[in-house]
């Protein structure tokens, strides 16, 4: 067989974006947020495990983490968690066949299931924004 060029986009295909629809960006953020929250959980387990080395080590770790940088990090993790959880609920509903509509005759200009689920997507994104704002208030203002 003659040589062929492998034109699979790889990770660029997720992250590269381009001129895509909004759900494509939500797909990317959902995956990145999921991986981010997973990374946080692993770091959190590591951080909590410092306790076994005694109160001095533990207090030193707590002092180290008590800085504006980690506070911002906490907020970023919270944003990722809130987005991933709420968008995940949207995906579960869609994957159970809700909000995608029934098969219909394709008549130009086509209306796809993406248009059918858009109101749900908007409601979920507004909810995510409200939850993130409330969390931000709690972390930066009330805390």
């Amino acid at each position: 067989m003659t040589k062929q060029f492998d034109n699979h986009l790889g990770i660029i295909g997720w992250l590269g974006g381009g001129r895509w629809g909004i759900e494509r960006y939500l797909y990317i953020i959902h995956r990145v947020a999921g991986l981010g929250v997973l990374l946080f959980f692993m770091m959190h387990i590591f951080e909590s495990s410092v306790r076994v080395f005694g109160p001095d080590r533990w207090n030193a770790a707590m002092n180290f983490l008590d800085s504006p940088f980690f506070k911002l990090g906490e907020f970023v993790v919270y944003c990722g968690f809130a987005f991933h959880a709420l968008n995940g609920l949207r995906l579960i509903l869609i994957e159970l066949g809700f909000a995608v509509g029934k098969a219909e005759e394709p008549v130009y200009p086509y209306r796809s299931s993406i248009d059918v689920q858009r109101p749900l997507m908007i409601v979920v994104m507004v909810m995510a924004a409200v939850v993130i704002l409330a969390g931000g208030m709690n972390i930066f203002v009330l805390d």
Partner: peptide, 11 residues
Amino acid sequence: CHYAGECSNAC
């Protein structure tokens, strides 16, 4: 499939 929806936009 995690519903990026791009297949339907492009078809």
